[in-house]
Measured scan of single mutants.
Amino acid sequence: QTVVIGDTTYHLNNPEAAQQIAKELAKKYGLKVVISGNTIKLK
């Protein structure tokens, strides 16, 4: 699972954790979560 935040890319072996982290950050910073395949992007 790949999480992309701005110009930073994180690789996590746990998809659920990756999605949870993405949701928390999106909520905290008012970002939009875009999931395509096994890549999660925060914009």
Rank of each mutant, 00 (worst) to 15 (best):
Q1M: 15
Q1K: 09
T2M: 10
T2A: 09
V3S: 02
V3T: 03
V3H: 02
V4T: 11
V4R: 10
V4K: 09
V4I: 12
I5A: 02
I5M: 06
I5G: 02
I5L: 06
G6D: 04
G6H: 07
G6C: 14
G6Y: 10
D7F: 15
T8E: 06
T8N: 08
T9Y: 09
T9A: 07
T9I: 12
Y10C: 15
Y10K: 02
Y10M: 07
Y10E: 01
H11A: 05
H11P: 03
H11I: 11
H11S: 06
L12D: 00
L12P: 01
L12N: 00
L12H: 04
L12R: 03
L12Q: 01
L12F: 15
N13G: 09
N13P: 14
N14H: 07
N14E: 05
P15E: 08
P15D: 06
P15N: 08
E16M: 09
E16N: 07
A17M: 12
A17R: 10
A17P: 01
A18R: 04
A18W: 14
A18E: 01
A18H: 03
Q19K: 11
Q19F: 15
Q19G: 05
Q20R: 14
Q20T: 09
Q20H: 09
Q20P: 00
I21C: 15
I21E: 01
I21P: 00
A22Q: 02
A22S: 03
K23C: 13
K23V: 09
K23N: 12
E24K: 14
E24H: 14
E24F: 15
L25S: 00
L25R: 00
L25W: 09
A26I: 05
K27M: 10
K27C: 13
K27E: 11
K27P: 01
K28E: 03
K28G: 00
K28Y: 13
K28Q: 05
K28S: 03
Y29N: 02
Y29H: 04
Y29P: 02
G30T: 02
G30A: 06
L31H: 05
L31T: 03
L31W: 11
K32V: 14
K32Q: 12
K32P: 04
V33R: 00
V33Y: 06
V33Q: 01
V33L: 12
V33I: 14
V33K: 00
V34I: 11
V34H: 06
I35G: 01
I35T: 04
I35D: 01
I35L: 06
S36I: 13
S36D: 12
G37P: 02
G37V: 04
G37D: 05
G37F: 08
G37R: 04
N38R: 05
N38T: 08
N38F: 07
N38P: 02
T39D: 03
T39H: 04
T39I: 12
T39M: 09
T39L: 07
I40G: 01
I40C: 00
I40Q: 00
I40K: 00
K41C: 15
L42T: 01
K43W: 14
K43R: 11
